[in-house]
Deep mutational scan, measured.
Amino acid sequence: MPSETPQAEVGPTGCPHRSGPHSAKGSLEKGSPEDKEAKEPLWIRPDAPSRCTWQLGRPASESPHHHTAPAKSPKILPDILKKIGDTPMVRINKIGKKFGLKCELLAKCEFFNAGGSVKDRISLRMIEDAERDGTLKPGDTIIEPTSGNTGIGLALAAAVRGYRCIIVMPEKMSSEKVDVLRALGAEIVRTPTNARFDSPESHVGVAWRLKNEIPNSHILDQYRNASNPLAHYDTTADEILQQCDGKLDMLVASVGTGGTITGIARKLKEKCPGCRIIGVDPEGSILAEPEELNQTEQTTYEVEGIGYDFIPTVLDRTVVDKWFKSNDEEAFTFARMLIAQEGLLCGGSAGSTVAVAVKAAQELQEGQRCVVILPDSVRNYMTKFLSDRWMLQKGFLKEEDLTEKKPWWWHLRVQELGLSAPLTVLPTITCGHTIEILREKGFDQAPVVDEAGVILGMVTLGNMLSSLLAGKVQPSDQVGKVIYKQFKQIRLTDTLGRLSHILEMDHFALVV
């Protein structure tokens, strides 16, 4: 994948999101292997301009796509893939009243899908469409860049269908997702969380590099694949309309690839034109409109599966009536509230959605109805927002919020430890010299600072030695090549209790 991002070429006709291997024109390309080798690009942008032909009021008969309808489940399912879809609609009884809503608040519980998330729908649909058009064949390999849930859905379907599955996901995604993927037989590649989507090191860039190296491999490409919004247009939206008897006044959905909100909203605009569509985008993402909503100094966020630093091709923002931004604290607070007060075992993005819903639905009156999409299960986040310690460490809970008995030293300040200034190293000294210094002084790690004293990161003896043994660096290389740029900081005025929580999850903390 090139470091400079080429513009994806656009073909003359058809839909841009065809499933299957992508040609340089962004659509299915038939021909000899030699032709494909000559024409197939190194990668295709996940934010390529959409060429979708959908228009409100256009006859369904003019759609270029294969459409399906929700099917009634048999008493005995032939395999677990038949437990994807037909998820329950559940009334939220307490939270709406707590925040003064007059309307009825309903939750579409997508964590009841077989793999635990709304992404099971698009995973199965992308595979079925690729099999139907002859792209996927027995023994082929599926590769997908994902925040985890699409990966789980694909790995689940691949396990049943017999495909090899490789999932490329950023490091910030939970260990629970990784464990589930491994249990399903998927191979996992992790990428830096802070890598831009168009960087060769991003999950998108690495996935395309693997595709170019592995024979008979395919990126189904949830960011561009029409099967993504079509899955929701054909099934999720129809289920909502049936469950609500066609009567709903507002739908609120958090947005990642945009397939969920695009597919549902398009069908609702056709069948229930008075329904307002509300999009939820986390602070630090750029999906919301108008652009002024996205202006923030924050560039990272903890909530998973929603928000991006690019506009995915499948996201149709014209069908969203209003956007709201959400933050991590309210997302996790509301997710825990949904679990504790409503018994809905949902993930953090569901918290984002409901946090926005109780604001947006203030305009609705008694007798009206708001539906929220709860995308995934708490299963993926047992060591994250479900953990009091994690919430404390991230600053989303305060010590006084917890009532468990603490040891005698818990409320003492870090400054009472009488710490001395640490050994520091410059980023320009060599790895070999740094190892000598650390061994001589008896230290395992040291902060790396520039000549102005600005902290650049941390270097550890173990990481340097393993990097040297693996051949990633040489003793003569500058130590700046092996620094940890993500590390926890703590102030002298913070409590030892807070430091204790940090050290339970990290090997060190830097006192500043």
Rank of each mutant, 00 (worst) to 15 (best):
P6G: 09
Q7F: 13
A8S: 02
P12N: 10
T13S: 02
G14C: 04
C15W: 09
R18S: 12
S19L: 05
H22A: 02
A24H: 13
S27R: 08
E37L: 14
L42V: 05
R45F: 05
P46A: 07
A48G: 15
S50N: 12
H66S: 10
A69P: 10
K72Y: 10
P78T: 11
I80T: 10
L81R: 05
K83L: 11
G85N: 07
G85M: 01
P88M: 04
I95C: 08
K98M: 13
K98N: 11
K98Q: 13
F99Q: 06
K102C: 08
E104P: 02
E104W: 01
E110S: 04
E110W: 00
V118D: 03
V118I: 06
K119H: 04
I122V: 04
I122K: 00
M126E: 06
D129E: 13
E131L: 04
R132N: 11
G134H: 06
I143E: 04
L154W: 00
L156G: 00
A159Y: 05
A159F: 05
A159Q: 07
E171R: 05
E176L: 08
D179H: 08
D179Y: 13
V180Q: 06
L181T: 03
L181A: 03
G185I: 01
A186M: 04
A186K: 01
V189S: 07
V189W: 08
P192N: 04
N194F: 13
F197M: 09
P200I: 08
E201L: 09
S202Y: 05
N212Y: 04
S217R: 01
S217E: 06
H218D: 03
H218T: 07
I219Q: 01
L220P: 01
Q222E: 05
Y223E: 04
Y223W: 01
A226R: 10
N228I: 01
H232L: 05
H232C: 00
A237W: 01
I240F: 04
I240Q: 00
L241R: 11
L241D: 04
Q243E: 07
Q243N: 06
C244K: 00
C244M: 06
G246A: 02
M250E: 00
V252R: 07
G258C: 03
G259T: 00
I261E: 02
T262L: 00
L268C: 02
C272M: 11
C272G: 08
C275A: 09
